[in-house]
Design a binder for these strands. Sequence first.
DNA 1: TTTTGCCTACGAATATTTTCGTAAACAAAC
DNA 2: GTTTGTTTACGAAAATATTCGTAGGCAAAA
Lengths: 128, 128
Amino acid sequence: MTKATRPTDSEMEILNILWQKGPSTVREVHEILGENKDAGYTTTLKLMQIMFEKKLLKRDTGNKSHVYQAAVSQQQTQGQLLKRMIDNVFNGSASQLVMQALGNHKTDKKELDQIMEYLKEVEKKTKS
Amino acid sequence: MTKATRPTDSEMEILNILWQKGPSTVREVHEILGENKDAGYTTTLKLMQIMFEKKLLKRDTGNKSHVYQAAVSQQQTQGQLLKRMIDNVFNGSASQLVMQALGNHKTDKKELDQIMEYLKEVEKKTKS
DNA sequence: TTTTGCCTACGAATATTTTCGTAAACAAAC
DNA sequence: GTTTGTTTACGAAAATATTCGTAGGCAAAA
């Protein structure tokens, strides 16, 4: 039984790509990473192999170039990391985080409306 | 010039204590940490010394027991970490983060109202 | 004064994450 | 068939974070 690790920063970069692009080879992921980052190919490979061992990724070894895809859902992963941050950084207060996020980040009106909408939904459910 | 490091998890634990309690000795911080965690005294000491070098903490060495306090503001630090998470985990969308946070975490009505209030404020400013 | 206890400083062992070099497999190009 | 290029696997270096042991200072208690 291994300790419950969360995706590291580098792992998140890869997950983001796979969530967006769907199943991809190491080469494809590496290429996209390369746009912002600068590391060798085997670095990306190794990272993805480790993620496979950790069960963050699935892979199809049918072809010469293995095809990887995310084995964890984006929602679930975001939720997990968010919870962590709320606990560690915002002393358990989700609302504090929300307000901080709304305050600092310039959010345009459309987004605010969307949030407002959502908030009403949640509130409705809570009330009942 | 050193690379811009962000507070690590352990460092956040200490910062949280100092933000809440105000200036404190290593012993005091260690005691509070000990409630949830279990590490030696010198571990805490070393961490705080490193944080001092990184300028995360200030200290008064006047007394035998040095008195430490946070050198970075809670707001600013939370904002920094939040921005990071929005970028790395939520593809730059603050609103996505907000809704995820509202959805997953059980937030009680009082908090929701508070957020709603705040949201209206922000929206007012945005509109004008 | 000697002992005891708590403090700091510091170096180093561990653990974790990120990086890459090298070897072997394999297929396409020559 | 040999070379060339791309791939995987693997080990280990490098970078970062966490932990602790030990030595020395200092003051209160004995």
